[in-house]
Design a protein around this nucleic acid. Structure first.
Lengths: 193, 193, 193, 193
DNA sequence: TATGAATGAGGTTTCATTCAT
DNA sequence: TATGAATGAAACCTCATTCAT
């Protein structure tokens, strides 16, 4: 398991890899803060490369967006797996819920794309979301068996709640205390009544 | 009560008024179903008028969007006021929460605009949101006095939760049962532990 | 037969019609002299309108090209029909051959497009070429019955020869005498040996 | 034979020479089948080398095109010289006419470039065409002296007819019989009436 | 020397907004 | 006043050519 999940087809030259990474980083950030409407050229400029380079790496704006989302999902899934392995079911469930929410927070469009996940995505993205869904399903089931979460809750609702909580906390970016109270409410509601 | 909230400058000829109303109706619907990215021309065509007419009534695309939101907010505020007057504090609070969520549901862009409410809106929208915020603040306070809602919850969190719940239910559009479970969770969490 | 062949779907405002015509004229000329590679914007500028106007009338560069060709074909077919009606079979055949060649002369790309006629064209162009082919077939048959043209010649060869003669005369643009000798050769070869 | 026609500046390493040859072969073929619009990169890929290598050998896309044409002309000139030496004037003339046409057939862009020959070409191409023109002039004169070709025909018309016949036969690629009839017509027309 | 990543000018097309009819 | 044609600033994307590896 030495190769990371993204496993490039060919080794990719050092500078090319650097550029690709830089582009993904910048795009993630720019899409998050300014929405997916930003001109491709601006992302290229922010990354310090020409448009041509961007389009060599991501042949389409949509492809760039997808790559951003895939990478983000992969990061989350990796952290989730770790958390799930290390903690008790109940603790793991809530920690992961918070993790996913926080990783997506501030990235409105991304959140929306995650929302559309089950619907019409391309192969690579499909794959990433499938992994994440499987993880969440497992965490949920374990937490329910442990009596820490309402037994009637299904996976779709869980995902909807995660996305919703992301939207909610996004608006409270400047007020950590209020954000914590939002988690209190949602987590409180998730526990058996 | 001749001067409605929008304060009409001049009486507006009958057909002009009809056009304006039609445009608002169509725009509400089109923005909701196809996103705010739709060409202005398409909205005009759907409303059966020329683009010129549209721009005569709303000097900017943004102005149209704002008008759509203002009208929606006004509708909601009116219904909220009615509910608040007719029901017990606790009942009124939850009914209004659900009302606002459902009125915004399926209108992702609108939800986001509502989210941005406290930040950078234009005068007319500012006014509408202020009214709504006042209503919600009152409902919240009353419900808390009645012991039906956690006492530590503030208005910002409440609004964030409404918006978040809107996002969440939006994704469960086809599954009313799941949607109801989302409300169960959120409402459960809102009550004192 | 009051309506011209092009029969606009809707009356089209006076200025719009003027612009459309101007664009077609300019495009015909520019494509002819500089090839189909010229930027669309240049055609718009030459016609004294903005790019937007060009694209309102012809939603695609290809559409513009097609329109240019259709109009040219229609002009030719009309003149051909007149010639065919007025002259004896032999005379008509050769006059039309020359007419088609000369109308296409100097328009290399157009000639090539005409060449591709039977192959992959869009509806409107298909229609125009079909008419022209029918005319040529009739002229050829009549001339052959009159003993003025080799009896074994088929329509495909005739068209190929027209296109080829067009290419040939195009190169002799500055030397009318030489061009006439090319016609002598081809016409001589067309007659029964 | 160290100084080949192109006058190699330096001996050129064996692999470099192989690459150059491969590039010319592939380019000839690709330009012929897909037009001169194909991206340079595609030609490089088809030849199994990087773009950099292509541009080392041919500093410009135009230079590559020119090299392709020069080589083609050289091939034709060589074959023409052989034919001219081996056959009677009349036979040689018609055989060479057909040869030139067929060597250019299916290479529309090339034909056009040949057509532009007398006009604005670069040195190396100029040279090649000059040789070919001299050969054709000689063949024509001999055939006219032998009474096999109309005496009034000049070199420009001959070249125009060759190019035109090339265009004509190109369109009949799938019908050898029709193509033969085109030659019958042109050859018939070339003979004294 | 060969490679292919990077560059960026330029091409086509869209769309908010203005203005002649 | 209503219409929809005209406008032109961008947006996305391609490709000849350069240059680091």
């Amino acid at each position: 398991m030495s190769g990371a999940s993204g496993a490039a087809e060919r080794p990719l030259r050092a500078d090319a890899a650097r550029n690709r990474a830089k582009l993904l980083d910048i795009a993630t950030q720019v899409f998050a803060t300014r929405g997916i409407g930003v001109p491709t050229e601006e992302i290229a400029r922010a990354a310090g490369v020409g448009v041509g380079t961007l389009f060599r790496h991501f042949p389409t704006k949509e492809a760039l967006l997808e790559a951003v989302m895939v990478r983000r999902l992969e990061t989350i899934t990796a952290k989730t797996a770790q958390l799930a392995a290390e903690a008790e079911p109940a603790e793991a469930f809530f920690a992961c819920f918070r993790l996913v929410v926080e990783q997506s927070a501030g990235k409105a469009e991304f959140t929306r794309a995650l929302a559309a996940a089950g619907v019409d995505v391309h192969a690579s993205l499909q794959e990433s979301t499938t992994v994440m869904r499987a993880q969440l399903a497992e965490l949920l089931a374990a937490a329910q068996r442990a009596g820490a979460v309402r037994p009637e809750l299904g996976l779709p609702e869980l995902i909807a709640l995660i996305v919703g909580t992301g939207t909610a906390t996004e608006q409270l970016a400047t007020d950590p205390v209020a954000r914590e109270r939002v988690f209190d409410v949602v987590f409180g509601g998730l526990r058996p009544h």
